[in-house]
Amino acid sequence: MSRGYLIRRLLAIILVLAIVTLAVFAITTILPGNAAIMILGEYATPDAVAALERQLHLDQPWYMQYLSWVAGILHGDFGTSLRLSQPVTQVVGEAFLNSAMLALTALAAVIIVAIPLGVLAALKRGTVIDLAIGLFSYLGTALPEFVTATLLLVFLAAPNVGPFPAGGFVAPWEDLAGFAAHVILPAATLGLILLAHVSRQVRSEMSEVLASDYVRAARLKGLSERRVIWRHTLPNSLAPAVAVISLDIGYLLGGIIVVEEIFAWPGLGRVLMYALENRDLPVIQAVTLLLAAIYALSNLVSDIIIAKLDPRVRYA
């Protein structure tokens, strides 16, 4: 992988983000409601509203608003939350950290569980085990997060009976056990769909590699079954699995919105829902941009991992 390739990829990401900002800006500018009135309240004097509009550049054409917004971002200034009267970076920053903890826990669980499940299903293809894993993964992909979350709550977080809290957040550096207790249900909810999807993908990749000419050749060289599986089959099935996981991160980022809402997890999703309800434009724009940037970067990271796993992949 050459440096030129990385530069080109990063440029492409910047282009993607530019398009995202334009699209988000376009969508949000159509939003009804006047930001200045929202901040000052309905009984503000027209003079005060006009003054604030000038301050927020609302009196300028949309492309000037867009450019000054982008210029602000480049200086690390995402504007001020209209509702909370705090800098957006401050509102979003802490929420981002909380969301990252939740998402990474879910992702780690998916990787640890899904890959072995997929491998197992492929090796036991056509048996009861394969069928059970297949059934489980189909069910997993058919349950929306809010249903999974509700069912988990009913069975595992009922008042006085269930072992887990029904919602809320404890920072891990304050109380690790408390954090674990709070993170399990939301992470399980987030992970289920991905788990199903990734294990199914690993199974189908693995089956394909198992049927390949070179695995047949490895068997016909008299190699032990263990070496055929662990050295010849598994590494070659992982690269596509990584690609799938990176695409699924988009799904994970969407799921986070619902899951945080249900489990009262103080992350980006909650901030976004709150901002949407209150038409808090700067926050909406910042969160959307952040999620898109994470997604684009995770795709780049996965491409780099794939290049490490598969020597044929050469990015020039």
Partner: peptide, 22 residues
């Protein structure tokens, strides 16, 4: 394709929420 890439970088549910809000 470039425009699609940009739109695809926004998760489906978030995209839907934005439009519903509008």
């Amino acid at each position: 394709m470039r425009i699609l890439d940009g739109l695809l970088a926004v998760p489906d549910l978030l995209f839907t929420l934005l439009i519903v809000t509008v």
